[in-house]
Structure formats: C-alpha cells, structure tokens
Amino acid sequence: MIDFERVSKRFGSWTAVDTVSFTVAEGEFRVLIGPSGSGKSTVLRMINRLIPADEGAIRIDGEDIASLRPEELRRRMGYVIQSVGLFPHWTVERNIATVPALLGWPKARIRDRVTELLELLNLDPRRYRTAYPHQLSGGQQQRVGVARALAAEPRILLMDEPFSALDPITRASLQSELSAIHRRTGTTVVFVTHDMDEALRLGDSIAVMDHGRLIQCATPLEILTRPASPLVRDLVGREEWGLKRLAVETAGDRARPQERVGGEPLPSETPLHRALSEMVSRGAERLPVVDGDGQPAGVLHLSDLVRPAPDRAA
C-alpha cells in the first residue's frame, strides 16, 4: 500500500534519509524504530509530505504522492504526534471534527462519528464532547488526538511517538486500545518509537533505522531471534531478552489445544511473559486458556514457555 523506492532526504550537508526502500502492506502495523537522529521521524513525515523527498519515489496504492496536492493527501491520512497538538481554542468535539469538516461532511454525520470515536477511546461523550483540551489530562488529550486522527476513517494512520510522553500505566492502556482499534478497523498503521518493548508489543513488522539507513525490516520474532546487526541487538537489549522473547507470542500460540484443566483461565491473547508471571504468582505449572468467546482453547504448560511442544513448533 505504501511504497518507498530509493528515497533520500538531505538537510544541508546532513543526510537524514539515505536511499531507503520498503513496502507497507494493506492493514499492516509497521513500527519504525531507531536511535534519535536515525531518520525514522523523517521517513514518517515524508509519507504525508510534511517533508518533501529529495530523491526517489513514494507511492500510495501505486500513485506517486508528489502528484497530489499535499493538503488532499494529508486529509486522507490520520496523523498523531507526541505532543498531541490539540487546538486549545476548540472543544474536543470540534477538534475531532477537524478533517470531516474540511471534507464537508454533513453535520449529523460528523456528530455521530464524534460520539462513536469518543466511545471507542473510552471517553464519555456526554462529559467530554464540549470540554476544552486544557481541561483534560495528558492521557485524555492523546485519546482525543487519536480520535481526531481516525475521524475521517483514514486508510493510513501515521503516529510519531504518540505515547512517549505518557506515564507507564496510561501508555499501556492506550497501546492495547490502539491494538484493538487496529484489529477492528484494519487501518494501515506506521508507528514511530524509540522504545523496543512498545515496538515488539504493537508491530506486525519492525523496521530498524540508523543513520538514515534501513538496517532490518522483519517480524518481532525475527528481530529478537535473528538481529541483523549489533545495533539491532543493542536495541533489543541482552537484559530480559527471554522475557521480550516471550512477549511476542501469546498464550493461544503455545497452548496444547486438546487438554483441559481447572482454574481461572487466561485469555488467549495474553502475552507469554504475562502468562509466566501468572504461573509464578499462582504457583501453578499449568493454566487453562480461553479464546475470545470464553470457550476453552487448551492448556499452557510451564515447559512450553521454555521450548514449544513438538507439535506446535513456531
């Protein structure tokens, strides 16, 4: 859906992005990660032409974005930044309605959409619709920021370290809400972060950048197990590597489907490091797993965390 073909960007004598090529598939959640100054934000901002590319071509659905009016292009995408940038003089409703209003949606449709989005992001519409941004906490502001980006049902959502300024608890809940929204809407997401745990948790695929170059682009599992360079290994970190490794798979992935056992069940999407934590705290070596509908989905064994059961090798 998004194609970068040998794209470069220089600021003066400094090369921010150096002949980068990659493709993001429709519906994919792609994380861009790297140290500061690696060019990850520049790549993101080239997708909506906040920064024009010097060389190479960027295509969306095969169409070169250089041929589009930048404003039109941007209205087709959602854009979320770390410092949110809500319009302080507009209510939450008007903030969220920005792009639909620009696109000339009818009033009733905008209103319904605002209600829907506020509910989607766990903000009570009655309470928050007419609030002003300064009346909201940082986490609520970013919820509104995400809602605003999703307002016009964009097929692409661009996010530049959206949760970095939030406290760990708020960050975790927004991460899981974003995951759920992504699963539900199938929106293509390009997400910039410098936090590998966040990348491993959210991404379908992770692109690691350094000094303007694309170092590795792979699934979280591959990044963990086959880092392409010492830098990637450093980003992953040696400490708690095992827990990170566990975090990229879920209880459902490793449960033995035919078995049944009693006890409080784990949802199948629980990451394995959480499952391990549960086992330790309950003192149990086996836990039942249930699927999204609450139906039994098998049993997770402690030994399966160390090494997958032979018939379910990844």
Binding site: L50, P70, E72, R75, S83, G85, L102
Partner: peptide, 17 residues
C-alpha cells in the same frame, strides 16, 4: 505552540486555513 501548527499541517489544513 509548534505542535498545534504541526498537527494542523499534518491534518491537511492549508497555510491560509
């Protein structure tokens, strides 16, 4: 605030808007 302007640009408001 710079982020407010950046967000406005990112959402496709024209310089005039």
């Amino acid at each position: 605030p710079a982020p407010v302007r950046e967000a406005a640009r990112g959402m496709g408001l024209t310089p005039r808007q």
